[in-house]
Amino acid sequence: MIVTIAIVRMRNLFGVIALSGVYSFLMASVLMVYDAVDVAMTEAAVGAGVSTVLLLAALHLTKSLEYPMPRPAAVPLIVAVGVGLALIWATYDLPAFGIADAPIHKHVAPHYLQNAIKETQVANVVSAVLADYRSFDTFGEVIVVFTAGIGVMLLLKGRRTRRDGSQGETP
């Protein structure tokens, strides 16, 4: 929470990137507390590691100081607060946190937990669900990573060759 406020208030983008890395590590420890080790690992590796490096590399291409906002923006503030309140209001319809007979624990989860080892010989149920039962979703995620990577590479490279007026390596 404190880190988030500091990120919003800070104008130096280098500090913002460092703080968002800190935030990712804090989120990873929160997920650890909830026993979601796989997600915590992803958060620590992706959120705190690689995205920090990539943001720093992006910062290298631009200026490191944010421009001050030209005028105070009332409408975005109202929208943000309104959406936040609506989300908080919606949480009252959720089942209580950690309760055993919530719908999410009654549908397919018991089947996975009981049969994953027998059906796939894989002891980590998270891996079994991700790569076998929900393989289509994971395939979609890989496609997303692939497409995003191709898009960024095309954007960054296309500009360079156009500005230089020549193909290939630049000195």
């Binding site: 080790v37 796989d38 915590a40 690992m41 992803t42 590796a45 992706v46 590691g49 690689v50 490096v53 894989v122 002891a123 980590n124 998270v126 891996s127 991700l130 790569a131 995620e141």
Partner: peptide
């Protein structure tokens, strides 16, 4: 990843982190 936490995504990012 079959037995402990982990899998392709995490391992990929760690390997990429080493190169970076």
């Amino acid at each position: 990843g079959d037995y402990g936490p982990g899998g392709g995504f995490q391992a990929g990012v760690i390997v990429a982190g080493a190169i970076i």
